[in-house]
Structure formats: structure tokens, C-alpha cells
Design a binder for these strands. Sequence first.
DNA 1: ACACCTTTTTAGAATCATTATAAAGTAAAT
DNA 2: ATTTACTTTATAATGATTCTAAAAAGGTGT
Lengths: 132, 132
Amino acid sequence: MKYIEKLRNSGLRPTKQRLQICEVLFDTKQTFHFTINDLAKKIKDQLDNRISLATIYNTVHAFEKKGYLKQIPINSNQTYFDTNISDHHHFYDLNEEKLIDLENSDVGPINIKRKINGKKIKSVEVLVKLED
Amino acid sequence: MKYIEKLRNSGLRPTKQRLQICEVLFDTKQTFHFTINDLAKKIKDQLDNRISLATIYNTVHAFEKKGYLKQIPINSNQTYFDTNISDHHHFYDLNEEKLIDLENSDVGPINIKRKINGKKIKSVEVLVKLED
DNA sequence: ACACCTTTTTAGAATCATTATAAAGTAAAT
DNA sequence: ATTTACTTTATAATGATTCTAAAAAGGTGT
């Protein structure tokens, strides 16, 4: 199993549940956005066994902390995650409540001129809200 | 009262509660960020009478819809609002969980090259995450 | 001022995502 | 194989936000 090493290397035990969640998240051609509920449904549909909701939360947060997932900053009652961890930005369609990837080449370079003492920039994320 | 006209013009009845919330939000030299809970506390401290939490929610959402407040896209369990409705962006200090305004001049122009058919850009918001 | 209609406020209940708990199960180390 | 430290799990708890329906207040016309 190709994810066993990946998990071990980051200090996460490769449990059956984590490996299955890896498959659902990363065995796809296309990256995608999801909420915990989306993921829970996907897991229920794709797997024979069931994984408890608590485990799904734990796993997603563990993966996010390790950098295998990105949280998307957006005001919604649910938290959105992205399996695309490359440097990129998002459209958010307010009418359809849908996220759309903006390739990095779709956005000109972003120049942050101000510095805060003792702080490093961890990420720069652009959210472009769309309406009809 | 200077807010009566403002509210009437946007189709909101200038009720006692709304006018008082206007004072708390807009009678300040500096703009600021807040959550509903922050605001509720501020209201309790600054006013003699009490305003129900439901009204605070209603009012903030009404003001946001009318453009007197901006929601700040950030992943937090609470929703953040900003009384600074000018075009500007934010630092988010991950360690201290604090928002800091970035003046528009602190960020170079942002060029969104991609268009989505039939959709207009409503806003472009940059969130710069900081860590120690 | 009064009557009428509409909007707003309110307390409390309901909802819903997320986190905490604590017991049972599993991986890894000795 | 035994022990130890993680993990999973069902369920309960939490906490922000929204809903509800009744009371109060604003606005308009008389």
C-alpha cells in the first residue's frame, strides 16, 4: 500500500481507517474541495465498512496538520478542505455556494509589502467572490 | 441622530436598537474587527438597556447585506466582521489568532485573469497567514 | 391622536457542525 | 507475549447560529 510509508513518515500510524480515507482523498486524477459531510458521504458510498464521524474529523485534522490537506478560508457554516495543496486561489460563487479553483497562472503575482516583526508569511490566499 | 437617514435610505427602519448598534459600531475613530460575541459584550458594557442576541444577529446581517459591514473570510468557528468596508486585506496571526488590517497600499494590485461566464466579481479578498 | 398594517424585537427552542469523553480495539516496542 | 501508547468509536456535550411565534414599535393615512 503506497500510503503506508507516507503516513509512517509523518508519525501517523497507518491504520485501516486512515489508509481508506487516503484512498478516497488521494486516489483521484482531479483534486477536489470538500466538507466533512461531503467526505463522510463519499466514504459511505465507496467503502463496505463504515468509519465513525469522529474518526473522519480526527483524520482530516491530522492530515491538515501534516500538510496533506489545506483548509480553505471562506465564511461558511461548514469548513472546506482542498486536496489541492499547491499554491492556488479560489472563486466562490455566492449564488450557487460553490468553490472553483483558480490556477496560479490565473492570478497575477501578489506583492505583500508590509512586514510584521518576528512573523513569517505562511500562506497568501485570495478569495474572489462571484455573483450573477 | 445622524444614522436615521442612513438607515432610512437603505430601507431599514431606524429602530432604537439599530441606532444604538450603529453608535457602537460606527462612532469610533478606528475601524475594528469583531465577532457577534465581541459585539454583544461591547453592547452590554456601553449601553444601559439590553439588546437581545437575536436582534444583534439580525442587525449585523442586515448591515452586512447593505454594505455597512464586511464579513472577513477566515476559517474560525465564529464569523468575523469588519467595520472597515474599504477595499483592503488582512493578516491573520495564527499563533495569536488575531486579525490585522493590511492597507490597500500594502498589497500590490491583484490581477484576476480568468472570467466565469455570466458572473461578476463582487470582491477580491486576500488573507495572509502569519506564523512565528 | 387613532386605527391599521407591516416590520422588528424578543425569549426561548431548535438545529447543526464540531469537539470532548471514556471505553474498547489495535499497532508497535520491549 | 506483554506492555505501552495510539486510535477508533458511540455517544454526549458544546457552542454558534437560526427559527418561531407572540409582543412591541414604526410608519401611514385619517
